[in-house]
Design a protein around this nucleic acid. Sequence first.
DNA 1: AAATGCAGTTAAATCGATTTATCAGCCCGT
DNA 2: ACGGGCTGATAAATCGATTTAACTGCATTT
Lengths: 340, 340
Amino acid sequence: MKKLSIVDIANHLNVSKTTISFILNGRAEEKRIGKELVERVQKFVEEVGYKPNSLAKSLRTGKSNIIGLMVEDISNPFFSAIARLIEDRAYKNGYKIIYCSTDNDTLKTRELINMFRDRHVDGYIIAPPKGIEDDIRSLLKDGMPVVLFDRHLPNVSTDFVEIDNLFSSYNATKHLIQQGYKDIAFITFASGQTQMQARLQGYHNALNESGYKPVVEEIVFNQNEDLIIAPITNFLKKNKKLDAVFFGTNHVGTCGLKVINSLGIKVPSDLAVVSFDDYDVFKLFSPPVTAIAQPIEAIADSVITVLLNKLNTSSQHISSQSIILKTDFNIRGSSKTTTR
Amino acid sequence: MKKLSIVDIANHLNVSKTTISFILNGRAEEKRIGKELVERVQKFVEEVGYKPNSLAKSLRTGKSNIIGLMVEDISNPFFSAIARLIEDRAYKNGYKIIYCSTDNDTLKTRELINMFRDRHVDGYIIAPPKGIEDDIRSLLKDGMPVVLFDRHLPNVSTDFVEIDNLFSSYNATKHLIQQGYKDIAFITFASGQTQMQARLQGYHNALNESGYKPVVEEIVFNQNEDLIIAPITNFLKKNKKLDAVFFGTNHVGTCGLKVINSLGIKVPSDLAVVSFDDYDVFKLFSPPVTAIAQPIEAIADSVITVLLNKLNTSSQHISSQSIILKTDFNIRGSSKTTTR
DNA sequence: AAATGCAGTTAAATCGATTTATCAGCCCGT
DNA sequence: ACGGGCTGATAAATCGATTTAACTGCATTT
């Protein structure tokens, strides 16, 4: 028993396949097809469970109902949580997701974009690495709906969803200062991306206001965790006079906590800790780590809303919108209970 | 400048599109096409960067080069880590991934399978919920390559990749017993799936050997974490005489630790903790939690190897294979340093 | 009576590839 | 001089849908 095609249906009912197609696409009324026939067709289609071949459909219409989702790394809890929510919303709206991890590698991302393009995805959701500007522009030029998130590309005019990195970072640093900490380091991944630049800036702004000296350590990203732990270890060993650290991402923060544990550093008496991106590790560490929580649901909602909007309105006239969301600052045990 | 089709190429070179197709598919030799012509075509194709429309290709050949990946929940670190690795391997072999989270919901899974099927994915990688047996059988009947992982369906004969749940669980329980613990509870999600049944069995086996009484608490899964934390809290409050708990999954384990913290229970003096599925939270908890680590890379490798194998050998004669992998038992601080 | 309009339906073109079947020369042997 | 066997290439069918353009009656205008 092969899969049925529209021709099989048409033959069986002694009707033209054109008619079937019109009926199935809800254009029966528009095409003035008799109610009785419409019903007969619908009943039969239902009965045999006929589903149009979506490939053929896509080939003809140019629409695939697939959204390409490119995150930095799906195994990062921040991205996997967002992916999960985006997936839900997308499926609910009749879209499927093809996803991939870019590793912030421009070349890899370029290849993946081409792959998506080749697959005729209808829209793109991308956490873009630097250097991918031209590829995104090229997508836009061809009228593809693109929404960036987590960061944006300053020289590309496109829709994006972000959080208020500058303020969040400023605020967290300020918090440490108010707690009495003076030698506050900022440890993060080396990255020219906007979100990290903003976080760095926020940190600097807060320190400047108080006249404290910034100490920034930039780690080169690597899939191998040991190569992240090693430089953090060196850094903390060298800078013994630090009394607080601010980690720029959840991943750095987690590695940082591992270092702190292995060096036997006491939190917060030896060293206070704050991190960007809240998650279970920070909640469960002893003492729990104060962290900046991104509004994951709101991000996912905004992203998908903006994208669906672009997908449904063919008008190219809408100028691109930037959505900047607020973060939550979750102050936890260590800093609250400590007075110095 | 529209996208080029094979006809454009053919016209421009004054050659038949058939010829172009043969050359591009490496059948030039077989079809005795002149070397000179082959070169001319290849050069031009390279020059203009022509890529065949993969939809049209898929429509004709029936192959989509897409693998459907269905995990329980992509935001669970265990699954997202595996997804990441599978993604890498798949892309390296020219396959893309469409993924989705089943939530262990049979109905949702059924719909997703149909969606995948509709999209003509070439193969399926599934962590199957119960009740989906018939759908899987139907896939197999139609000759679709299917690999299950993390669990299997006892009444469906298909390839699957798993870990040795029974032994791992037995071993972990045994470890607690050897440390001197007597009142050991097993807390997990209620689930009829094979992996959980095996874990339960292992726990029971170990306790039976020692003549201790099993105490099992099964939590109903819920997306809302509060509804997981609440029953665990009740359970721990009611069973004050417990001296150890064994959590059946990373998610339960994490929630369990939250409960332990909020109740002010001291680990391991009040309560020793062991969990299935190792990850950062367990490593960084104080004291670090002993955990059973699944060999994530090996699982991903096995899954993709088995699937690619099935995809490349059209012969249906190969009987299905089951791969059972060993786990690592990571004994950490709490249990090692404590003697009772 | 020819023209127009409309309701109801459909034949045929199209999307962009792959694959089957065939064809035009040319050489060879008988 | 004619069938057979190569070589090198292609026309046409096919995959399964959508969409355009047209066609058949019948009623209504002009």
